[in-house]
Computed example of a mutant assay.
Amino acid sequence: MSSAKRVVLAAANSRALDVYVGYTNLLVGRDKACRLGQYLARFLAYVVARRIARQGKTAGLVAWLATLAKVQQALGTTRKVMRAGKFVNFAQLAARAIAAAAPGDDEVAWALGLAQKLGMCVFMAADTLGLLGTTLALVRLRDPAHVARVAQRGWLCALAAQALLAVYQLRAVSIRAADLRRVRSHIEKTDDAMGDRECAIEERALAVQRAGLSRQLAAAALDLTIPLKGLGILPLNEGLVALAGTATSLMGAQDVLSKVVSA
């Protein structure tokens, strides 16, 4: 076998290439990559705009600003197309949550989960309507700006519900961890080896759950800055908002990548 053929075979069977193909085959993976590019372009545009404000306009800086604006718009439109119609999925999830409600369920967690799904349904529906009416001009909208505001409000409600649910579940984990510490203290006095192993297993499970919920809370809190600024509720710095979006995009891409690697 020739050296060139060996190189080609090695490249074709590369684990890195397998991971890349697996990642890009997923719609959510492509969406997270586009989102990362979108918010990174937004942050770089902020940096360039600040430089122009300090140093004055130059041909190079103006060209960079125009390019970054085009990248941001193109990736934003691409993401809108990829998620068009996804509001049906969130409507279905909300309907299933309502249908599956039972008297013994945790009502707070159920209500917050339902609010998150309904908020995302509103966001996605208004987002799809805006795509059809503004970008593609397939339907006529009386007030496109109002549709965009409805989308932002839906997203804001979904993120707020997600953050509150994470806080609520973290509190439940903390209560369970405190109970487990009391059980472990009793087990240590009785020298129960089997009970000690069971406590150790549950402690590890709680640690994993706490880490996941903390990550969820951090992502929701960072993403909240985007609709809060978009709706004019808080006068947040454009650079900080862009960085927040970049950070949560990286977190989302990492989550998808970890699933592809472990598959």
Rank of each mutant, 00 (worst) to 15 (best):
Q72K: 09
Q209F: 07
T190I: 15
Q38V: 01
E203Q: 14
T67C: 05
A211Y: 09
G130K: 07
E188Y: 04
D31P: 11
G252M: 11
A111L: 11
A211N: 11
S214K: 15
Q254P: 02
A172G: 13
R176K: 14
R79F: 01
A220N: 02
G133Q: 08
P227F: 01
L114K: 10
A148K: 05
V62W: 01
N25W: 14
P144I: 02
C121L: 12
S249C: 14
T128G: 04
F123S: 11
V122R: 06
V88M: 13
W155C: 06
S185V: 11
V260R: 03
G230L: 01
V21A: 09
A263K: 08
D192N: 15
A145M: 02
A211C: 09
E202D: 10
A193N: 08
D192Q: 13
A45Q: 09
L75V: 02
V241I: 06
D143M: 07
A160L: 09
L180C: 07
A59T: 04
V108K: 07
A16W: 09
Q169E: 13
T190N: 10
T135C: 13
V261M: 05
L228D: 10
A99W: 15
S14D: 07
G60E: 14
Q162P: 06
P235Q: 01
L118A: 07
G113S: 13
E202L: 14
A126E: 09
L68A: 07
R210W: 05
A244G: 00
F43R: 03
W64C: 09
A163Y: 07
V8F: 08
L129K: 08
A94I: 11
L93Q: 09
A100S: 15
L228K: 10
A94S: 14
V183W: 01
R149W: 01
V256N: 04
D105M: 13
A33M: 00
L170C: 12
Q38Y: 06
A220W: 02
C199F: 15
V88E: 05
G76N: 04
A205P: 14
A12H: 09
K32P: 05
A94H: 10
A177E: 10
Q254I: 05
T58Y: 01
R149Y: 00
L222G: 11
A100I: 13
F43T: 04
P144S: 01
N13L: 11
R181P: 08
W110V: 05
L9C: 04
K70F: 00
L156C: 10
D191W: 12
A10I: 01
A218Y: 09
T24D: 05
Q169R: 14
Y23W: 12
T67F: 03
